[in-house]
Every structure is written in structure tokens, then in C-alpha cells.
Amino acid sequence: MKEKLYKQLKIVAFLLFLLIAIWWFGQDAALVERFYSGKLFPVFAIIGQTLVSRVPFSLGDYLYCLFLFVFILFIVNIIRCFFQKNYLKAITHFVQSLIFLLTLIICFYLFWGLNYFRIPLEKRMGLDMNINQSCELLETTVLCIDKANELRRLLRQQDFQRSNQQIFLQAQNLLANSSSLRPYLFSYLPMIKSPITNLHVNYTMVAGYFNPFTQEAQVNTAMPVFSKPFTACHELGHQAGIGFEDEANLVGFILCIESDDLLFRYSAYYNALFMLLAQLAVEDKNAYFNVLKLISRDVLNDAETENAYWKKFDGILNHASSRFYNEYLQLNNQPEGLMRYSRMTKLLIAWKKSSTLKR
């Protein structure tokens, strides 16, 4: 038993060394951009997407369930050995669980996670982030209100009856055919799947998520339809090598407005609008209350519908998952945590200065 434990400790030491080497590598964004995001990640993406594209269901969800089961098994065995006063065996099980955990962390960074440490999208796109935040924020908010109002007026009932698969296919085609974003993304086999159940994503109040182990993007299929296109394109941004949440939001926005589909364009402006409003409420309360009057009744009704939907699931599980994900983002080069999502407003303003928003 002791010899087995010594061998396992050597494996732990090797895995820790490998993890430290990965961390050291991640400190140089140019190195990550050139050798990982430009060369190694595409290999993992091609292999993963090729294999998983043949599976009609969310393989990653079952994989997470397996990970959870294995961890519970380790914990049960450790506790059982302690109660039996077999401490050496308990330590062995603990070291085995550590090996399992370190292996998962290393696989996470190798398969996709190092994209968190690449050169920021704003630099690769040459965006000027020196902006007059208050003035340009108000201007961009009003522009998005006008666009959202106009597009909402043009939408018909049949647009809101779009199936999930139709939305997913349209989003996948947008990423595959995007000429403006092609230099900044890696797209091989864009794919979006439904979760095995919407129960866990509803109660954690998650609109979509990306599985780095299986290269699968998932979208909550039960939420209001007008939020699905933007969420689908956001998750495809992650699948294409975008780590930061604000950058995935910008990618989702650009993909949606490049579409000729009214629902996709409305989804982009609708989601961007309420991010901009949240920032405006912080910076200029008077302007915030004034621009609220410009939003059409139909757009406000959509916002009320969405708020009512998510309110049903707000609770302890949501707060716990939000806290966990906030810590996760902070550990992965996003010190703002969940607030990183809202930084999209600054990216959007900078991008607007360098392009013309599509009508």
C-alpha cells in the first residue's frame, strides 16, 4: 500500500509541475495567442467537434454527471476508511481524487481554457477603447433603443414560433459564414445543442453554457425565444476560441446583426439595450429615466416576460452557482467576475466607432 501511495504522490508532483508550467505559459498573452490559440487549440477543437458532432445529445452533460459521481465515490470511500480507522487507505483515496482533479484541470486548460489568456479581442480588432463613456454610452443606448423598437414592430407572430433547431442552425451558419469575424475566431464545425434537461439550467438561471471538454455549446431551450439567438451566438463565440464573457457578448451581437433574420437582429439589440441601460443607470440616473420613455411598449413587454420567466427560478441554487461562477471567472483572468459580462457596453461603443451598425 505504501509503495502504491509513493507512486501516486509522484504522479501528483508531476501533475502539479505540469499545471505550474501551463500557468507560467499563460502569463504571456502573445505566446498563448501564437502557439496555443493559433496552433494547439484548433487541433483539440477539430478532434472534439468531429467526434461530438456525431452524437445527437449533449454528451458533455453526461460527462459532468460522471465527474460528479466519481467525486462522490471518492468522498464516500475516504469517509468510510476514516471510520474504519484505515488511515493509510483513506490517504490513498484522497491522493487518487487529487490526481483525478488535477488531470481534469490540465485537460480543461489544454482543450480550451488557455483561451482565457490570449490577447484581448479589442487589441486584435484594433478597437479604440479611449472613449467618452458618458456621452457615447447615451448615444449608443438611444441608437439600440431605436433599432430594437423598429425591429420589434416588424416582427410577426410566426417569428416567435421559431423552433430551437431552426435558431441553432441559423446561428451556426452565421458563424461559419461570417467574413468580418473570421480573422479573430476559429470555426470548424459550429454546433449548438440542447441540455439534457432545462431543469438545472433554469434553477441556476443560466441562458447558455459551453463545455470545454466536449466542445459543445448549449442553449437553454425553455427561455423566451427572443433571447435564444443572441445566447446561441454568444456560446458559439466561446466554441470559436473566445474566453472572455464581454468578448463573447460582442461576438454574439455582431453575428446576430449580420443576419438578415429579423428575430436575430432584434435579439442582438434587445440584449445589448438592457446591458447599456444597466450601465447608464449607474453613470447617469437622470439620463437613464429619460431614455426609458423612448422604449416601445412591445419591447418593454418582452422584458417583463423575460423577467417573469427567470424570477420563477430565483433561489438558493442560483445564488450559490453565481458565487461559484464569479470565483471561476476571477481565477481565469477576469478579476471583475460576473461583472465582466457588462463590460460588453464599452466594447460595443468602441466597435460602433469603427463600424456602422446594420439596419
Rank of each mutant, 00 (worst) to 15 (best):
Phe57Ile: 12
Leu59Asn: 09
Gly60Gln: 11
Gly60Thr: 01
Leu63Asp: 00
Leu63His: 08
Leu63Glu: 00
Tyr64Ile: 14
Tyr64Ser: 01
Leu66Asp: 00
Phe67Asn: 03
Leu68Tyr: 08
Phe71Met: 09
Ile72Cys: 12
Ile72Met: 14
Leu73Val: 12
Phe74Glu: 11
Ile75Asp: 06
Ile75Leu: 15
Val76Thr: 02
Asn77Arg: 10
Asn77Ile: 11
Ile79Ser: 04
Arg80Ser: 07
Cys81Met: 04
Phe82Ser: 06
Phe82Cys: 14
Gln84Glu: 10
Gln84Thr: 07
Lys85Trp: 06
Lys85Asp: 00
Lys85Pro: 00
Asn86Glu: 14
Tyr87Ser: 01
Tyr87Trp: 13
Leu88His: 06
Leu88Met: 13
Leu88Val: 12
Lys89Cys: 04
Ile91His: 06
Ile91Ser: 09
Thr92Ile: 03
Thr92Phe: 13
His93Asp: 12
His93Val: 09
His93Pro: 00
Phe94Trp: 08
Phe94Thr: 15
Phe94Val: 08
Phe94Gln: 04
Val95Met: 03
Gln96Val: 00
Gln96Ala: 10
Phe100Asp: 07
Leu101Pro: 00
Leu102Met: 08
Leu102Gly: 06
Thr103Val: 10
Thr103Ser: 14
Thr103Asn: 05
Leu104Ala: 07
Leu104Met: 13
Ile106Ala: 11
Cys107His: 03
Tyr109Met: 05
Tyr109Val: 01
Leu110Pro: 13
Phe111Trp: 03
Phe111Ser: 15
Trp112Arg: 06
Gly113Ala: 04
Asn115Gln: 08
Tyr116Ser: 04
Tyr116His: 15
Tyr116Met: 05
Phe117Asn: 09
Phe117Ser: 02
Phe117Tyr: 15
Arg118Leu: 00
Arg118His: 02
Ile119Thr: 15
Ile119Met: 06
Pro120Asp: 06
Leu121Tyr: 02
Gly126His: 14
Leu127Pro: 10
Asp128Ala: 15
Asn130Arg: 03
Asn130Phe: 07
Ile131Cys: 09
Gln133Asp: 07
Gln133Thr: 14
Gln133Met: 11
Cys135Tyr: 09
Cys135Ala: 12
Leu137His: 06
Glu139Lys: 15
Thr140Pro: 12
Thr140Gly: 07
Val142Phe: 01
Leu143Trp: 02
Leu143Arg: 11
Leu143Glu: 14
Ile145Asp: 04
Asp146Met: 05
Asp146Trp: 01
Lys147Ile: 06
Ala148Tyr: 07
Ala148Arg: 02
Asn149Met: 03
Glu150Asp: 10
Glu150Thr: 11
Leu151Phe: 12
Leu151Glu: 10
Leu154Trp: 00
Leu154Phe: 02
Leu154His: 02
Leu155Trp: 03
Gln157His: 03
Asp159Phe: 02
Phe160Pro: 01
Gln161Met: 09
Gln161Pro: 00
